[in-house]
Each structure stands twice: as C-alpha cells, then as structure tokens.
C-alpha cells in the first residue's frame, strides 16, 4: 500500500522467518507449543504482511486465489480422510492407533497428518477472507 522503504526492507527481512516459524510451529507442535491452527494463522499473517508492504496484487500473484479454495477443502478432506482411513484399517473413526504396527507410531502419524490438514485449511481460509476483503477495496 505505502511506498515506505524502511517498512519494505524490514518486512523483507522478517517474512522468511515468519514463514519458517510457521512451519516450525506446524511440525514441532507435537513437542512444543503450537499446532495446525497456530501455524496456519502465522503463515497467513506472513503473507498478509507481504501484501501490506508490497501491495495486494503481488501477493495475489504469489498465492493464486484459484488455488486457495481447493486448498481449504483439501485440508478438511485430509482430516476426514485420516478418519476414514482408520475406519478402513479396522479402527474407530479418528482412532490413529491402527495407522502403524506400533500404536504409538500410529498416533504420531495420525496427529501429524490431521494437524497438517488443519494448518492448510486455516491458512487458506484466512488468506481467502483477506483477499476477498482487499479485492473489493477502492
């Protein structure tokens, strides 16, 4: 939006770390604080910061909005798909223990996958809403 050079340089420095931190929160959520929701929101916030400093058009080129709606659906489907997979493998819905030979590993894989689904959906929906607002501006 603005042409402030200081803002742009600082944002350019910060954004890679914000996105990296989002990925860290996503995949390290099993061990430290965080998880899919937080990671998705932080990721979306990084992209939004880019849109604020460099303009909405470049941000929309970076993350094509045609991709966002399918991604939002993909996250929900991934989550539900894990549930269906556990049912196919003979467990209850979302009972991850059957995903691997060792129930603990099964739980681990299941949680990793559904958190990924949560993260994808949350990030995509946040960006969708933001772009929907911004595309009407002016």
């Amino acid at each position: 939006m603005g042409d402030d050079r200081v803002l742009r340089v600082i944002a350019r420095l910060l954004i890679p770390f914000i996105l990296l931190f989002a990925l860290y929160v996503q995949f390290h959520g099993d061990y430290g604080p965080g998880g899919g929701f937080q990671a998705g929101v932080i990721f979306a916030a990084g992209i939004i910061l880019y849109a604020l400093t460099y303009g909405v058009e470049p941000a929309m080129r970076l993350v094509p909005r045609r991709l966002l709606a399918p991604l939002a659906a993909l996250g929900v489907l991934l989550y539900g798909g894990v549930g269906v997979a556990t049912m196919v493998l003979g467990g209850k819905f979302l009972d991850y223990s059957v995903l691997a030979h060792d129930p603990l590993h099964g739980q681990h894989y299941g949680i990793l996958l559904i958190e990924l689904g949560v993260g994808i959906t949350v990030a995509a929906v946040m960006l969708l809403i933001f772009f929907a607002f911004m595309s009407r501006e002016g």
Binding site: D30, L104, H108, I111
Partner: peptide
Amino acid sequence: IGLPNMVTSVLASYRG
C-alpha cells in the same frame, strides 16, 4: 499417545 505436548494429544487425539 507418546507426545510430550499434552495439549496436542488432547486436541488431536482424544478430542479429534
């Protein structure tokens, strides 16, 4: 569950 972060265990597994 075997995860150190109990919040994640409850959120993603018990309350999946």
